[in-house]
Design a protein around this nucleic acid. Structure first.
Length: 484
DNA sequence: TCAAATCCGCCTTTCCCTTA
DNA sequence: TAAGGGAAAGGCGGATTTGA
């Protein structure tokens, strides 16, 4: 299940039935690595920003990754306040569960999220911010991972495609549309959680950008070592004229203190020309969740904290039932019924703990797919065999390590949906034996994850992963380490 | 009628750049 | 390495307009 479903259209201003949780934000995974805005509004005349770092390419070669941001002189480059606007727009967008690319808003709501006082120049800043996000062009060279091609690819895009700035109040005439490619990237799962309560509490643009960058890095490790100049110039966007490590260190001291005081960092120190950051207790690793249902609920549109609250305390059996209930909702109810308020619908299911689904609905649904058995008896048999498989503890821990490595390539819901459910049966002779629930998983892994998986296997020093079906039959797919 | 939206002006803050 | 100047944006509060 990849959650690839459409939600019914919501009219402007229509209540989506979700309790807004404005502190649950999202960030596009590429936009937190390289900046798209000035760090300092005082460099207003600048119309180009260039950033570069290096990644390991398809064949293990070191490939330069370039990120060029340009803007017409008339509008200028996005400013720090425009970056805040982007975070606020992401909050708004994900409150509607990615239902539509056309997002309606009230100016007052946006100002509330941004924490700007309604009045003064706030409305003007808002309007100009939209214009700059619309006019900015990003040329990303080898910065986007293409799952189909299995390599990093080039992308040219703006952030916002169109904006309607109505004169009236409310949400009737005020809307914006994300750039199609960017919106598709959100839908493909190239997004991560952002603790916006922490984000908005940070006092300076530098702290906010450092937080977004490090939060992305902490997704798959606790400690980040990075060259001082590289961090300052390529990822934070500080002026290249500030090129002495001690000067940069002094400028970043306040941000380090702020992030340490907030609990996001536990320690940060300088070793030669590098900074070493250690994640603190507030670094939330939501990208790999123990309960895949949680990610699915968030994707449907529930706020993370609400989803967490409603799924906490479920027994293993109830979690399994909920998973099947969500399958039924996504595959049968949503396409066939006119559910006006899917978020409210799902909440009522969770609150009532009513997870039952009609008998044999999977048979009807799965009959269309060659990947699963096409009679209910063999389907049931296969499911029983799958449930009877006891993972080996050592092998399972190794598999979770591999999944953690893959967080650099795939987003949470992808890992939670397609990879974490696999059961690691055995680890012998440096080979990990994994059992997949059905052929659908095999074909997905073969098509989308072969290369990243090979890299991850190499990173945890294994030589090979082989796959088995629940009935014990070995699959043709086998992935070996790329390494050394 | 009242909340939302807009306009305006003044003071504060931020940060690059220069100089000692 | 630190301090000060300067330029530009941000913050804030009050007055006014708009529209449901």
């Amino acid at each position: 299940m990849n959650g690839n479903f459409e939600l019914p259209f919501l009219a402007p201003g229509e209540d989506i039935g979700q309790e807004a949780d404005p502190r649950e934000g999202k960030d596009e995974t590429n936009l937190c690595i390289f900046p798209f805005a000035l760090l300092d509004s005082h460099r207003g005349s600048q119309t180009t920003l260039e950033f570069q770092d290096y990644i390991r390419g398809k064949n293990g070669d070191i490939v330069p990754r370039r990120w060029t941001v340009t803007s017409p002189e008339k509008y200028g480059l996005p400013r720090p306040c425009d970056e805040d606007l982007y975070i606020a727009l992401m909050e708004l967008t994900f409150r509607t569960g990615l239902a539509e690319n056309q997002i309606y808003f009230s100016k007052k709501d946006l100002l509330d999220i941004l924490g700007w006082t309604p009045g003064g120049k706030s409305y003007q800043r808002l309007r100009e911010g939209f214009q700059r996000l619309q006019k900015v062009q990003i040329e990303a060279r080898k910065a986007f991972w293409d799952q189909e091609a299995g390599e990093y690819v080039d992308r040219d895009f703006s952030l916002i495609q169109s904006v309607s700035w109505g004169e009236g109040q409310g949400t009737q005439n005020n809307w914006f549309k994300w750039n199609d490619e960017l919106f598709e990237s959100f839908r493909s799962g190239n997004i991560k959680f952002l603790d916006t309560e922490l984000y908005w509490s940070l006092g300076t643009p530098t702290s906010r950008r450092l937080y977004r960058f490090l939060d992305r890095q902490f997704v798959w490790r606790d400690r980040v070592t990075i060259g001082i100049l590289r961090l300052a110039h390529q990822h934070l966007g500080m002026s290249r004229t500030i090129n002495k490590p001690h000067v940069i260190h002094n400028k970043l001291r306040a941000s380090f203190d702020e992030l340490t005081a907030s609990g996001f960092l536990s320690q940060v120190w300088r070793e030669g020309d590098c900074f070493i950051f250690v994640a603190g207790s507030r670094t939330v690793r939501r990208t790999i969740v123990a309960d895949p249902n949680l990610e699915r609920l968030v994707r449907i549109g529930l706020g993370h904290s609400i989803a967490q609250q409603l799924t906490s305390g479920l027994t293993a059996q109830e979690r399994e039932q909920l998973s099947r209930r969500l399958d039924f909702f996504e595959q049968v109810e949503l396409p066939s019924k006119r559910i006006r308020n899917p978020v409210g619908f799902i909440r009522s299911i969770l609150q009532g703990r009513e997870f039952s689904v009609p008998e044999n609905w999977q048979q009807l649904k799965f009959d269309d797919r060659e990947a699963v058995p096409n009679d209910s008896a063999s389907f049931e048999q296969s499911r029983e065999q799958w449930e009877a498989i006891e993972p080996s503890r050592e092998a399972q821990e190794r598999w979770e390590q591999i999944c953690a490595e893959l967080a650099a390539c795939f987003d949470s819901h992808v890992i939670a949906t397609w990879l974490l459910p696999l059961k690691a049966r055995e680890l012998s002779q440096n080979t990990l034996k994994l059992v997949v629930p059905n052929n659908l998983f095999l074909s997905w892994i073969g098509e989308n994850a072969s290369l990243p998986l090979a890299n991850a296997i190499s990173a945890v020093q294994l030589s090979c992963v082989s796959f088995y079906l629940p009935e014990g039959k070995e699959a043709a797919l086998k992935i070996g380490s790329t390494g050394h």
